[in-house]
Design a protein around this nucleic acid. Sequence first.
DNA 1: TTATATGCAAAAGCTTTGCATGGGT
DNA 2: ACCCATGCAAAGCTTTTGCATATAA
Lengths: 151, 151
Amino acid sequence: VSGALRDRWLARAEHRLTQAGLRAGAARTAVVELLAREGHCLMSAQEVCDRLRATGTASPASVYRVLDQLCDLGLLHRLYGKDGVARYEIVDPENHHHHLVDEGSGEVRPFKDEQLEEAIEKVGRRLGVRITGHEVTLRGSLERPPKRSQG
Amino acid sequence: VSGALRDRWLARAEHRLTQAGLRAGAARTAVVELLAREGHCLMSAQEVCDRLRATGTASPASVYRVLDQLCDLGLLHRLYGKDGVARYEIVDPENHHHHLVDEGSGEVRPFKDEQLEEAIEKVGRRLGVRITGHEVTLRGSLERPPKRSQG
DNA sequence: TTATATGCAAAAGCTTTGCATGGGT
DNA sequence: ACCCATGCAAAGCTTTTGCATATAA
């Protein structure tokens, strides 16, 4: 969303990729820049492919390869929704969030909740485990409160 | 685990299936009984197939079809782990739980935590949404606390 | 008797991989 | 120069589907 967020991740990504001895080709550059702009919440490999097919900047094989690299380097999270398709989103500690899925439309809305984070920390303590990561998915109806009998 | 839990689900399952106008063939019976016994935590379609291939009681096609039916009827939950493979577990309100995944081995341990449930309810209230379902996955290291330098 | 269940084999969809070529550093 | 990146096409895996047959109610 904000330019700051985008640039922050982009810089970190380029840095770690270089650091890992990887090189910037056309495909990787295209994928990374697309993600920096629009990869903040659940983008599938296919969506990335579609976006980039238009400009012919990356083949599907490269898209999948770059996505894998980014996951391995901890720059991307890979999640699976109810359709079993992998979806990716940028890892940004300052933008940690979870997902609320509308039962009706399947629409996904990201949300942040500090008290939820604290609750999860406490669960870890009760279980006697150091929690290194967590995911929460909520399902519910997003429809507005019903208006009074006004067809 | 306990026979009570198994029988409870089995009875409910048979009832709803019948109610839905579905019929009990050999394959469905085999799948449902296997799940009642061992489907309490994350079993993949392939595992079901393997188990049943031994006795030749159900083909893969039937396994997948039955699994789908059970999900549609709310008798089974379908979840996706980090490998993108669908895994199923029995829906039993009296055995509601979440999952803790060991970073090292990938081993999954189910856990219950009432305070976590309450925390999630509160999140729903804060978001102004009625929560109809939720999933939590925790990741951490299950290794025991290190013993004092005693090789 | 009629709608559903089943099995097989083929197809579908997402993802990975082998290989030859192009390109970064 | 050396090694990594890329694209294409083929292969891999899980899951779905078409169709003919069997079977529950």
